[in-house]
């Protein structure tokens, strides 16, 4: 999986790394109305997790090394998208190896809070004990922050799930509360 690495510091300051696939698993992702997924031999969309990983070496210290993934093929079967469905998926993270020379990122421990159907909990662990703040941000489709995904009339990055109660995210305990009304697509 190719990722682009860049910074605002010295030149040359950008290069590309191809991260190899190291594992492929099917996470447990309960839905509001569970049905047989393609991972189980059914027809409903199923999700698999592919882990790409490698060791990279930054050529110098900088406060804003950016690792960016730019891939075409956002899943068009997710119907909360508007016209942006079937478009690019862009994600990035920023590493500061100048001021925080041995920092680690937090790690998502689970994606969904199983057992409480309407409470999504993006539980994370940070080995450095850093203070974490969570936010819902517009999904990007391009290199520029303004290149974001269009949702349908009923959803947005702040309300990604159809719910009879407002979608709420606690920025400090990372839990999203929703009340599903029908099977989400």
């Amino acid at each position: 999986m190719p990722v682009e690495i860049s910074s605002s510091c010295n030149s040359p300051n950008n290069f590309t790394v191809n991260l190899p696939l190291i594992s492929q698993t099917i996470p447990n992702l309960p839905s509001c109305n569970p049905v047989m997924t393609t991972c189980e031999g059914g027809l409903s969309l199923g999700i698999e997790k592919n882990v790409f990983q490698d060791t990279i070496t930054f050529p110098f210290a900088c406060t804003d090394w950016t690792i960016l993934l730019y891939q075409y093929g956002r899943c068009s079967l997710v119907t909360t998208y508007g016209v942006g469905g079937n478009s690019n998926l862009v994600a990035h993270c920023v590493i500061n190896n100048q001021d925080a020379v041995t920092n680690h990122s937090p790690v998502f421990i689970n994606l969904l809070y199983t057992g409480q159907q309407q409470c999504y909990s993006f539980l994370t662990y940070d080995s450095d004990g850093d203070s974490l703040v969570y936010d819902l941000v517009p999904p990007r489709t391009g290199y520029f922050p303004a290149d974001t995904l269009y949702y349908d009339a009923f959803h947005s990055h702040a309300t990604p799930v159809y719910s009879s109660t407002p979608n709420t995210l606690n920025p400090f305990n990372r839990r999203i509360f929703v009340t599903c009304q029908y099977r989400m697509k």
């Binding site: 992702l29 839905s31 049905v35 997924t37 393609t38 027809l43 409903s44 969309l45 999700i47 899943c75 079967l77 997710v78 119907t79 909360t80 998208y81 994600a91 500061n96 925080a100 920092n103 990122s105 937090p106 999504y120 993006f122 994370t124 940070d126 450095d128 004990g129 850093d130 203070s131 974490l132 703040v133 969570y134 936010d135 819902l136 941000v137 999904p139 990604p160 799930v161 995210l169 990372r174 999203i176 099977r183 989400m184 697509k185």
Partner: peptide, 20 residues
Amino acid sequence: MKSNTLRFAILLFIFSISTR
């Protein structure tokens, strides 16, 4: 504890339909 505040984009797109 470092003072850095790390902000993570939480991506929430999952769920179902009948064809691929």
